[in-house]
Computed example of a mutant assay.
Amino acid sequence: MLDANSTTAKEPITPIPEPATIDPLKVKLGERLFGDPRLSHDNSRSCASCHDLRTNGASRNSHDVALDGSGLPLNTLTVFNASLSFRFGWEGKFRTLESDIKASLESPWIMGTNPSEIAERLNADAGVRQEFAAAFGRGPDALNVVDAIASFERTLVTPGSRFDHWLAGDPAALSADELNGYRLFKSLGCASCHQGVNIGGNLFERHGIFHPLASPQPEILRVPSLRNVATTPPYFHDGSAPTLDDAVRKMGLAQLNSTLTNQQVNEIVAYLQSLTGYYRGVPVGASP
């Protein structure tokens, strides 16, 4: 467990904790469901279709594809560390992980089904019924289908980034450029919105305060987490920034009214690259 020492205790960011202790039978079942295409109405996709845990917890697409073949309106957010956010989705419409999961299942564009329909399908599978009985003491139903998925998603935290090691007191964890980037991140005002354990995810903000940033709608967004941000291009709610360099420059101008120099951008990007954590013993973005 990483603990901030006296030199970093007043920093606006805190180390990410180890995964919560959750019933392993529920977690195992939730992981199985996360990759099960029976969760979609036409059996064409699973949660993992848009949230690839082998890469970045999302995808490399600006817009993932809806069930009807059209593009989804917003860029897919990573599921890694999502449970640490105070609201869910770009617009923050959902207050609990369970309500966010249920909304995705019921969305006609994403999964096009509902927990009751899924439970009925799963009840036809004797092996799955047995797993639910072991984890919940009963077969699949609308409540425990969502509970199992949420239990698994709560384990998808990625501790151990180099920045977290620095916060915990290792002065050699960051390079000079990365430290300079973190100082700029604070002094320029980036940390006003991107702070806390998830380096974001804990407040709402209007985008394009000084200059247009990306697609004008939605106008108010939940500030995204910057955890593992180097692994999650393209950026912004419309996926319009292809690289971290581009995103940093545009954010500086749009949100801070600052035209950043090349050196400032390079150092901030270097700092952001230190935010990549570990999932199951390997860095996020590096398949086991």
Rank of each mutant, 00 (worst) to 15 (best):
M1Q: 00
N5T: 03
P12G: 13
P19C: 00
R32T: 14
D36M: 10
P37Q: 04
P37I: 05
H41F: 13
S46P: 11
L53K: 07
A58F: 05
S59F: 15
G69S: 09
P73C: 03
L77K: 15
V79I: 14
R87C: 00
G89D: 10
W90Y: 11
S104L: 15
L105Y: 11
M111G: 05
N114K: 12
E117W: 12
I118K: 03
A119G: 06
A126E: 15
A133E: 15
A135I: 00
G137Q: 05
T155D: 01
G160Q: 03
R162V: 00
D164T: 09
H165R: 11
L174P: 00
S175D: 06
L184S: 11
H194Q: 02
G196I: 07
G201A: 05
L203P: 01
R206A: 13
R206E: 14
F210P: 01
Q217K: 12
L221T: 12
S225M: 04
R227H: 15
N228M: 04
A230F: 11
T231P: 00
A241R: 15
P242W: 08
P242N: 11
T243F: 11
T243M: 08
R249W: 10
L260I: 11
E267S: 13
V269W: 04
V269I: 01
L275E: 14
Y279C: 04
G281W: 08
P283Q: 06
P288A: 04
